[in-house]
Amino acid sequence: MSISQSPGQTVTPMENATPPAAKRSILAKVTGRGLIHGLLTNKKALFGLTILFLFVLLAVMAPLIAPGNPSNFGPDVSAAPSSEHWLGTTAKGQDVMALTLWGSRSSLAVGFAVGLIATFIGCLVGIASAYFGKVADELLSLLTNIFLLIPGLPLLVVLAAFLPPGPTTVVIVLVITGWAGSARVLRSQALSIRGKDFVAAAIVTGEKTWRIMFLEIMPNMASIVMSTLLGCIIYGIGAQAGLEFLGLGDTSSVSWGTNLYWANNDGAMMTGDWWVLIPSGLAIALIAFALAMINYAVDEVTNPRLRAEKKD
């Protein structure tokens, strides 16, 4: 947008004298470097990225920090946090810190997998819908709206009930219930880009359809795709935890959701073992909060109207 100049404008020598800066900013806009630069100077984004980075680091290092199988039962049962077990132990004697660390691997992996796949399907459906228009648009929009309207959690439960349990099922089920929201948002954005001249030019030059969809249209809505992705990851992590808390996931695996499922099943609340409940829930909240912060930052960087005004 900033590239276009009003046609009648004459280029004065003065303007000619300062092209490097202008050129760089244009280049930054095109390659999305403007967005990244904006994010790195935004407090909310930095805060979110730091937390996210810490969690990924801890998840990767889990085998080093807490070696051994975290589900193995230990001798200390329902022990409060101490120097030996920093976060205490469960009613079965498992170390809560080990469970939380190892749990982050499954939770992050499922969350990111769901986010990426759901966003990809959302992009595919949304952009195709906007690009082809007419009957294809009607049908795809109908499909999207139906999936948006069917209440997610009950559908999740019903699907999980009929599919064989396991991490793949969890991902599939969450993608089925999660893609529609992003498809709708991406479609309306793609529609406005579809009408731009450069898309018409690409069609006339005979570019392949998928190239126009993913290399012409999609890069121009990078910020929306990005915030959709973040939203989908938040959804994936939260919904996985919910599903597993209900006992509909893979209860033998270790994730934040199953940790809470077992805590609840072993009556951690009734016996007052609050330390079993806090870490996994707090971890989910922190990662969701971090992602939400990055999301708001993306919004703020790309939508100047939302930037906090210093003066009215």
Binding site: A241, S280, A288, F289
Partner: peptide, 8 residues
């Protein structure tokens, strides 16, 4: 607050 899972 909204980041916390409902059930938690």
């Amino acid at each position: 607050v909204g980041s916390f899972p409902y059930f938690w």
